[in-house]
Write a protein that binds this DNA or RNA. Sequence first.
DNA 1: ACATTAAGTGATT
DNA 2: AATCACTTAATGT
Length: 214
Amino acid sequence: MSYETPEYSSIFSSVFEPDLLAELEAKSMLMKVSSGETIMRIGSPVRAVPLVISGIVKVSLINDDGQEILLYYVRKGETCPMSFTCWMTTKVSSIEGVAEEDSVILAVPGKVVDEWLLKYPTWKKFVMATILDGFSVVIKSIDDLAFKKMDDRLIIYLKEKSKATGSSLINLTHQQIGDELGTNRVVVSRLLKKLENDNKLLLYRNQIKLLRNL
DNA sequence: ACATTAAGTGATT
DNA sequence: AATCACTTAATGT
């Protein structure tokens, strides 16, 4: 297990004012989570806002049948837009957040999240920006779900995955991809095969290599 | 060598 | 696009 040094002040020093950085250090809690660990569980109340210091957190929606749909990733220097809406309305989380890699998270207690909105303009700006951004990402995924066919969604998914990991190699089984897109393994295998025949990617066991022309 | 898991494929709904 | 049933290929023990 490898964690980056939690030099979070440097990540946020450009966005937050010094006073806020100091309070951040004093009042929030640093958490290390390993890859695959669940950070936000469905049905549990959200009592803190997680800032991602290093690593990636995958946020997805899961319905009653256990079907999963990827919503978005939260990267270094970002936070989860849904976490705000959850604690502000004191509702329980309807989504799940899982660490995609070993990650370091700064948990900011809900209480101070609220105070800082009045106290620090940069905090307010940060919060508004992530909510706004999250909103457009979700609108985008509604668009994908409603109007795009599976093959387009697969391509979008692969590209996003590759961008998230910074690699053209994707280490996932067809089953895992199917789970994330809310479809079954056979469909994924067939679509991937088609893409391979079109020279868009190469298939291996547990691994997919994306080619430039995808 | 054998068992297990991932991937490929035709046929059916 | 989903499901079933089956085959083939890769990997672990």
